[in-house]
Design a protein around this nucleic acid. Sequence first.
DNA 1: TTCGTAAATCGCAGCGCTATGATTAGCCCA
DNA 2: TGGGCTAATCATAGCGCTGCGATTTACGAA
Lengths: 343, 343
Amino acid sequence: MEATKRHRRKMQSVTMMDVAERAQVSPSTVSLYLRKPDAVSATASRAIAEAIDALKYVPNLMAGGLAAASSRAVSVIVPSVRNAFFAETVATMQAELGRERLQVMLGHSEYSEREEENLVKMALSWKPAAIVLTGLSHTATTRRLLKESSVPVVELWELGREPIDMAVGFYHEQVGSTAATHLVQRGRKQLLYIGARLQEDRRAALRADGFLRTARETDGVTAEIIEHPAPASAAIGAMLLAEAIKKYPDADAIACSNDHIALGVIFECQRIGISIPERLSVIGFGDLSFSGACNPALTTIRPPGDLIGTEAARLILERIRSFEHPAPQVIDTRFTLLQRQSS
Amino acid sequence: MEATKRHRRKMQSVTMMDVAERAQVSPSTVSLYLRKPDAVSATASRAIAEAIDALKYVPNLMAGGLAAASSRAVSVIVPSVRNAFFAETVATMQAELGRERLQVMLGHSEYSEREEENLVKMALSWKPAAIVLTGLSHTATTRRLLKESSVPVVELWELGREPIDMAVGFYHEQVGSTAATHLVQRGRKQLLYIGARLQEDRRAALRADGFLRTARETDGVTAEIIEHPAPASAAIGAMLLAEAIKKYPDADAIACSNDHIALGVIFECQRIGISIPERLSVIGFGDLSFSGACNPALTTIRPPGDLIGTEAARLILERIRSFEHPAPQVIDTRFTLLQRQSS
DNA sequence: TTCGTAAATCGCAGCGCTATGATTAGCCCA
DNA sequence: TGGGCTAATCATAGCGCTGCGATTTACGAA
């Protein structure tokens, strides 16, 4: 019937133009209505809303992002969402940002700065509204890319050195220090720190540092560290406790790099008949779902994973809304010592 | 100096055109090189690669997505990534899809079909390469939107009714049935199922159904259920165990809706002096990080969260690569009974 | 009634890339 | 040496939307 047209293209069934036509306004007005509803008259708003509804219009964010040179996506890069800490933060951020119709794009660095750099490059391709990283350690290239990009950047879960742009978290040395102080106050003298994967998990290593420093600064108190390269788990915790007791039979307190380890310690103590807290005090980090229900209930330090998420989301939203006040750059969320039965 | 131009636009520093110019080829060739490297000659490839490197070109995926009417994003919607099961799957999918430069966009339905529907609408705005949902229950609108969209859809973690498009998971009734059979084989007669949030967590409810049905079909075996509306946790598990023992003092086996609950059961039994497995067998679901390290080690059923992720990613990639063979629609990943000390 | 001003609305010109079909280069064999 | 083919490359025409400035409308004051 027809000669083949030179060019044909796929298309979206309903576009903004269709909505405009039905609502008897220009596409510009529809666009305005979608982006800044307050700038459109009540009459027009009603007509446009009706048209959108009737046509089941779905905006094309790719087109919008291209035209605006920035998307409604926020790239969030964490070591792994398998880790309950980061899961909490990611979940909270998604909820907060989703409310403003911002999409969370997720990436896992698996504790590798190299991999993180790749993810940042990918993320930049999306012209994200913001990029969220975990920690303050990144490759030089990562830092350069982000500084050059002028995309808002938030670094989570760690304070200390200068952030690229904004940071939300707490000082991990302080966590270790707080744990040591607590154990000393409970009358303990021979402290042990047991940790997993301190090479990869820089923040766990910082906690260990703070713990050892504070303990050793105290008169009459000794502190040693026992570590293992495997990822933190209860099984590793149990193993390390056995090893620790063999090596330091007179130890009277154990701080664990996180609550998984501490759980293993508790179980192993049950097995070999060490009573907690009489003979051994135990303190963890994380306040995981089981920590309060252990036997004995685990004394631990709770990092505010959800607060970190909400604060990060807040910073991002403020930054997006106005270029003016570049918000406080660094937010210290603190952490909480929860004293329970194990110490 | 200059009259203001009518229009000015923001722009990306380095575009594909810049690369083309430096490499002495047309933009089309650069585009082709990026999408199908094999279709470009070695000479051109080298020149283009050099130019990309020298100019530090970063492709604009928004522009690409708009032109191609489909993006490199995969929307993944789970009840919550706080749940270790879904975290595992999400992490695995991100790794697998990231390898092919597909971006995971994350959404949390918080166990609400209504919220899931909103997330699906948002997702569709991005013209995703695929949409991944959890479970087979969705609102009618969700199903309609997805069917009309012609976007590949994968439903995870549950088999049973007809999927929208593809599905990867297992039968939760079978999980319950397997648990019941196992306990009966261990000589148990008075079985109890304790579960949390069975109203919201449809899959947990299915497991309970399968458990009760199989148990009650067995001669000489009784089975009761005890539930609680709060989210699963060790604390709830401990509470429910206490309640269960009061109500059914002669019960000799407990199946838990997941390992968090089971952990609470173990701790509570320790406290009130019930020996596991002598007096009471315990079986969980999930094989969480602590399950093998408990005291006693927990018998549980392991769902293959990682396998679900890899299989889903594989289906998506196959579907993207070719429209031809619409792959097997449903993949049953099965699950594994891990018998340990608690039963 | 007319004008000035603010509030609404509109028209234009792309954003940076890809799909398509057309064109050119490369190469084997007769 | 030329024909016939395949492999490479290219030019074109948008994809659907937004930012900007221009234009129109609304409305009270003079």
